[in-house]
């Protein structure tokens, strides 16, 4: 589904990786190791200096940029909601292509387990957890096939973070999404992922199934990170 071949960008050096359809891949590692950059690269918010990225077997340059971005949803670390109501935010993406239908918000609010009466609430009057759910629903409104998540729960308390994780797992099962998630929380890596990619100093140093690679790390760097 997703493939990076020898991709370099800034401090990222020769990154090669692949993520299969409906896989939940987790990129984890210390802060500043370039994890988020990989997500930006795949959403084409930036382009690689070297190497190639493939989506469904074709170079991502072959897709229209806006079309690719709609198909590969990116959830940023902060909700970055647009000023206005919850509804204004939910319809933003589909309205760009004229695909928004009245009543779609009901389904989206259900997906992220938010009460329907929040529909007309000003986003400034929502809690942090609610804002992140609205942001997730806004990304889902485009009906993406791939979901890229950049530390989606880092600003939330543990309970809210776990609630969001449950929502995500259910969504992946229900909609058959492929997901790449960036996190530096090891318990989250264990709970969420089927495939782990450990990043350190701009390179992927170890890849493996989860939770196996956390229990039996092969590289010294991962061992140190897990101990550390």
């Amino acid at each position: 589904m997703i493939e990076f071949k020898n991709v370099s960008y800034g401090p990222l050096k020769n990154i090669s990786l692949s993520v299969d359809k409906q896989e939940i891949a987790i990129l984890f590692g210390p802060s500043g190791s370039g994890k988020s950059t990989l997500l930006y690269l795949f959403n084409r918010l930036i382009d690689p200096e070297q190497g190639e990225i493939f989506y469904k077997g074709k170079p991502i340059d072959d897709f229209s940029i806006t079309g690719l971005r709609q198909n590969v949803g990116l959830l940023l670390q902060s909700p970055n909601l647009f000023p206005g109501s919850v509804l204004d935010n939910l319809k933003y993406g589909p309205s760009l292509t004229g695909s928004w239908k009245e009543g779609d918000e009901k389904r989206l609010l259900e997906y992220v387990q938010l009460p329907q009466d929040l529909r007309d609430r000003d986003v400034d009057h929502l809690s942090g957890g609610q804002q992140q759910r609205v942001s997730l629903a806004r990304t889902l409104a485009n009906e993406p096939e791939v979901l890229l998540l950049d530390e989606p729960t880092s600003a939330l308390d543990n309970n809210t973070a776990e609630e969001i994780e449950i929502v995500l797992k259910e969504l992946i099962e229900e909609k058959g999404l492929t997901m790449v998630m960036v996190t530096h929380q090891l318990d989250q890596v264990r709970r969420m992922g089927t495939k782990g990619m450990f990043m350190n100093e701009g390179t992927i140093q170890e890849t493996g199934g989860l939770p196996g690679m956390l229990d039996n790390p092969e590289t010294l760097e991962l061992k140190e990170y897990l101990e550390g």
Binding site: N43, L76, N80, Y92, L96, N142
Partner: peptide, 20 residues
């Protein structure tokens, strides 16, 4: 910057992303 990136990532054209 975050809102612009969010808008672009949702498929907005630069003109739409910078409307605000």
């Amino acid at each position: 910057n975050g809102r612009i990136l969010a808008a672009l990532s949702l498929g907005a054209e630069p003109k739409q992303a910078s409307h605000l």
